[in-house]
């Protein structure tokens, strides 16, 4: 028990020092910090999600935690312990994800079989393709929809889209990646 506490203190102190270096722009320290924090965030998020009885994609939550930490790194005070700061971000992101999921749960319907017309040649005209794609894009979560609109429909560069949306470039990349995954699911094989 005592060794667990000592390990926590040691981890917290090491991560605090790396975060302090990261605030000054040390990319190596930041890379190490994120690499060590990712599995910790994964464990913490998985525990909280399991306690809530939700089968959320833990990896998605871990990525959101890392993105939030990145955007909030200026708020860490090196004179204070690192773990409470990090735990607050993890807790916020998991609970926010659960709230988001509850809000959207009522509007989603699971479709076991893709309608037959979808596979027939006649149904696959360019006009209906565009219509289906438009409907599918409209069903995307706000962040993913914005990424598709800015990067694919308006054909902005990542930097331009980042300036317009206020999201970081890595956040936009993650959003775009997930949007394509969601669209693939919505539009069938």
């Amino acid at each position: 028990m005592i060794s667990d506490r000592a390990k926590h203190l040691e981890d917290s102190s090491r991560w605090g020092a790396w975060m302090q270096a990261a605030q000054d722009g040390d990319q190596t320290a930041y890379g190490r910090l994120l690499a060590e924090l990712a599995p910790v965030a994964r464990r913490m998020a998985a525990r909280q999600l399991a306690a809530s009885g939700v089968a959320e994609d833990v990896e998605d939550v871990v990525q959101e935690i890392l993105l939030t930490l990145h955007g909030a790194r200026h708020t860490y005070d090196p004179t204070r312990p690192f773990l409470p700061w990090f735990a607050a971000i993890v807790d916020h992101r998991v609970k926010d994800g659960l709230r988001h999921r509850r809000r959207h749960q009522g509007r989603e319907t699971d479709i076991e079989q893709v309608p037959e017309t979808f596979l027939s040649q006649a149904a696959n005209t360019s006009a209906t393709d565009r219509m289906d794609l438009g409907k599918a894009v409209a069903k995307l979560p706000a962040g993913q929809r914005q990424a598709v609109e800015l990067l694919k429909i308006k054909e902005m560069s990542l930097t331009e889209a980042s300036a317009v949306s206020g999201q970081s470039v890595p956040a936009l990349k993650v959003a775009m990646h997930r949007a394509l995954k969601t669209l693939k699911g919505l539009l069938g094989p």
């Binding site: 990261a22 605030q23 000054d24 722009g25 040390d26 990319q27 190596t28 930041y30 890379g31 994120l34 690499a35 990712a38 990896e59 871990v62 990525q63 890392l66 993105l67 990145h70 790194r73 200026h74 708020t75 860490y76 005070d77 090196p78 970081s168 470039v169 890595p170 990349k173 993650v174 990646h177």
Partner: peptide, 23 residues
């Protein structure tokens, strides 16, 4: 994008930040 790629992206594009002053 997997988590390792995201970590590389975030650390590779890291810029120094001004620390938030104490309350």
């Amino acid at each position: 994008m997997n988590t390792d790629q995201l970590i590389q992206e975030l650390s590779g594009s890291l810029a120094p930040v001004k620390r938030l002053a104490s309350p």
